[in-house]
Design a protein around this nucleic acid. Structure first.
Lengths: 202, 202
DNA sequence: CCAATACGATACGGTCTCGTATCGTAAGTC
DNA sequence: GACTTACGATACGAGACCGTATCGTATTGG
């Protein structure tokens, strides 16, 4: 789990350095950015990269899995609250948030790693799902539901499918093509095209 | 020069068993299906799983990367030739092909693994791209172009974006949610919804 | 029968990581 | 100053895998 000071820290000796916590997590992220997979990471390697003794890592986390959970949590970002003026703009807000995150190398690297190993480490996947995906999905669902009620979205479309229609293209690009394929304005284009449809209007 | 044996191999001695070739590749696929990552695979482990001596593997491939290339190639499937009657049906054909492939555990496992490690093993990624992705993309592009010419698809939409609008949702589901989320009829629903649009028709 | 090669098994030295333990030193509390 | 804990460094035995080599046996062609 995390390495929190409990509420009543009877601090006797030298306190643990928060900077060391951060340095370890930062080192793990750096290695992931450089192409390492979660499975390929080693405590030794992380400690080396962080310029830290191996025991210092083990003093904080029992093993790689627990450390990875905190690495995930370190990337938590508040999901944007859509303004609620038009469904179209709200959708753009959500997708634009995804786009910016996909542009961050550490995010896409982690996304790929976690996805690959979600079988081997169900716990890790659950954590990623809760920390990163769930909030976005909830926000998106709320927007879509509102759109259906307001008539901006057709009533006969499955909202679950709809969510994938909007997020799928962004996700696929972030995972397959990597940074460069997430240009400015991509969110708007996806939203408008899916809303409008591809067939010529009659 | 070199390679005197490559073109005209004199067949002395016991020939290599093609069944052993297959057993090794099959073992690698089995391990990947069970959740191993490409990086986590080991020649020793593959040989063990295949019931084969380690030297037998090294006799065929110089290392893991070369073996992986053949593992990829073993999954080659002829991309379906769309009938060409209507663009809508052709799109469904392409997406349905993707759906069926996503249902095959070994395909999605390999897809995830390769994506994760595409940085570490660019060569491997290139091979996957050529063997699995390129054909589908070419087919899809041809269909879309034809649709634009025939008027079934609006002329003002970027075909590159359009391709992602159709394939992205299928890919995202295959990678994130795993088998269960690729139900019958998904291809039709994606195609029809994207063609028709989500806004209510005026 | 003989020569040549494949094959499963096993052994080898080497490297890497594991998780634990033990140094001497640094940084806090009492 | 005494005590307690953190820290970087290092050592340790255990285990996995690397790539190569060498067994004895099996399977082919000559």
């Amino acid at each position: 789990m995390t390495a929190p000071e409990s509420s009543a820290p009877k601090l006797r000796g030298r306190p643990r350095s928060p900077a060391t916590d951060a340095a370890i997590i930062e080192a793990a992220l750096r290695l992931l950015e450089e192409g390492a997979s979660v499975g390929g990471l080693s405590i030794e390697g992380i400690a080396r990269e962080a310029g830290v003794g191996k025991a210092t890592v083990y003093r904080r986390w029992p093993g790689k899995d627990a450390l990875m959970l905190d690495v995930l949590r370190s990337l938590e970002e508040p999901s944007p609250e859509p303004a609620g003026v038009s469904v179209r703009d709200d959708l753009v807000t959500v997708l634009e948030f995804m786009r910016r995150r996909g542009l961050a190398k550490r995010h896409s690297a982690l996304l790929r790693s976690v996805i690959t190993q979600m079988h081997a480490h169900k716990e890790l996947w659950r954590a990623y799902d809760e920390n990163v995906i769930a909030a976005r999905r909830a926000t998106l669902r709320a927007v879509l539901r509102r759109g259906r009620e307001s008539g901006e979205i057709r009533a006969d479309v499955d909202l679950e499918l709809l969510a994938d229609l909007f997020t799928g293209p962004m996700l696929a690009r972030a995972m397959l093509h990597e940074w460069k394929e997430l240009p400015d304005g991509l969110a708007e284009r996806i939203v408008d095209t899916v809303l409008e449809g591809v067939s010529p209007r009659r």
